[in-house]
């Protein structure tokens, strides 16, 4: 039992790490990785929503009728997203402003709905929580890695502190929209090379 829970947890960290192995939830991946702090904020918010919605959906999986399950899932997810939105607005207002519409958009993040449909709707509570936590942490790690590369080269800083000397000229392409696509594409390629060995 404990072993299978550990397995559900660790698969989100490498084997099925979103958004690289499961190419889902790309919009926030591209939009909030301009700097490391927004990436971590988004990751934590998403992890919270994922764990809570997985837990509730797994608890209710025998009550929810099969035909309207997607609608039920979305309502559960939307409720937790509203919680995250209000909490962020109250306690981390600068982060709330920076993330903007991407907080309410967690509702339509395919990872959350995808895990609900593929995992939590069929499995007991504890593995579902482990699955949500693993996927959430994996997503946070990916976002942070991508954001670190983009912030480092695009702005020459890491979490706001300069990493290079004064000689460094920021490569602003990286922090703008085209850079996001190219950078994610290249990271996916590197993951493929490592994974295929």
């Amino acid at each position: 039992m404990a072993q299978s829970i550990a397995k559900e947890f660790t698969k989100g960290l490498w084997e099925e790490i979103p958004p690289f192995r499961l190419v889902l939830g790309l919009c926030p991946t591209l939009a909030v990785t301009k700097s490391v702090d927004t990436a971590i904020g988004m990751g934590v918010g998403l992890t919270f929503v994922l764990v809570c919605s997985n837990m509730i959906i797994s608890l209710l999986r025998k009550i929810i009728p099969d035909k309207v399950r997607i609608a039920c899932y979305i309502v559960v997810i939307a409720a937790f997203v509203t919680v995250v939105e209000l909490v962020m607005q109250a306690f981390t207002y600068p982060l709330y402003l920076k993330l903007g519409i991407f907080i309410p958009l967690i509702v339509v993040n395919c990872i959350v709905l995808g895990r609900a449909e593929a995992f939590a709707g069929k499995n007991p509570v504890l593995p579902s929580i482990a699955d949500g936590l693993g996927m959430g942490i994996g997503y946070t790690l990916s976002l942070t890695a991508l954001a670190a590369i983009r912030e480092c080269f695009g702005a020459g800083t890491l979490l706001g502190t300069p990493v290079f000397g004064p000689w460094f000229h920021p490569f602003t392409f990286m922090v703008q929209a085209p850079g996001a696509f190219v950078c994610l594409g290249l990271m996916l390629c590197i993951m493929n090379i490592i994974g295929s060995k």
């Binding site: 594409g185 996916l188 295929s196």
Partner: peptide, 19 residues
């Protein structure tokens, strides 16, 4: 090249279009 296939190159292409 094999590692670049599909989504990976798709994203890079999207980057060019975005440019």
């Amino acid at each position: 090249p094999q590692p670049l296939q599909d989504t990976s190159l798709g994203l890079v292409t999207a980057g060019m279009l975005s440019l």
